[in-house]
Simulated scan of single mutants.
Amino acid sequence: MPESPEVERIPSDLQELLDRFFAVCRQDLELMRDALHGRDFNTLARLGHTARGTGSGYGFKGMGRIGYDIELAALERDPAAIERHVDNLAHYLDTVQVEFDG
């Protein structure tokens, strides 16, 4: 895991949506952990894909990269890699620093 937090530059018009955004991301993270426990690779691929698209769409490039990693590991049915990437996502959500554009 990275030692220093990532800094993401987000459009200022999204500022009021971020509390809800992070709440949903944390819910999805728990769903990922549950799916991993149950070896539900289809759900993991879907959730990884969602994290990739949503993260990138909001400007969270690091989340987009991790979501892609989760999706790919799920498609490869690699539980050890999935667990590592899910842990990376948890760390990212806990430490990401947001700077607003505009």
Score class of each variant (00 low, 15 high):
Thr50Tyr: 06
Pro11Ser: 02
Pro79Leu: 02
Ala35Leu: 03
Pro5Asp: 01
Thr43Gly: 01
Asp69Trp: 00
Gly102Pro: 10
Asp101Leu: 08
Gly59Val: 01
Glu16Ser: 15
Ile70His: 03
Asp69Thr: 15
Asp34Asn: 12
Glu3Trp: 04
Ser12Gly: 09
Leu47Trp: 08
Glu3Ile: 13
Ile82Ser: 01
Leu72Ile: 14
Tyr92Gln: 08
Ala81Ile: 13
Leu89Lys: 09
Val98Asn: 05
Gly55Pro: 01
Pro11Ile: 01
Gly48Arg: 13
Val24Ala: 12
Pro5Gln: 00
Arg9Asp: 06
Glu30Leu: 08
Asn88Ile: 11
Pro2Phe: 08
Pro5Tyr: 02
Glu3Tyr: 05
Arg26Lys: 12
Leu29Glu: 04
Ala73Lys: 08
Asp94Gln: 09
Gly102Tyr: 07
His85Gly: 03
Leu18Gln: 01
Ala80Ser: 14
Gln97Ile: 11
Gln97Leu: 11
Phe22Asn: 07
Arg84Ser: 14
Gly53Ser: 04
His85Cys: 07
Asp19Lys: 13
Ala23Gln: 14
Arg20Trp: 13
Glu6His: 05
Ala51Thr: 13
Phe60Arg: 06
Phe21Trp: 14
Asp69Lys: 07
Gln15Ile: 09
Asp40Ser: 10
Ala23Asp: 15
Phe60Val: 09
Ala80Cys: 10
Arg52Lys: 14
His85Glu: 08
Leu75Gln: 15
Gln27Val: 15
Glu71Asn: 10
Arg84Pro: 02
Cys25Ser: 15
Leu36Ile: 03
Asp101Lys: 04
Phe60Gly: 06
Ala45Ile: 12
Pro5Val: 08
Leu36Val: 03
Phe21Met: 09
Glu16Cys: 11
Glu76Lys: 14
His37Gly: 12
Leu47Gly: 04
Asp69Ser: 13
Asp94Val: 00
Ser12Lys: 05
Pro5Thr: 06
Glu71His: 11
Gly59Tyr: 01
Leu29Gln: 08
His85Tyr: 13
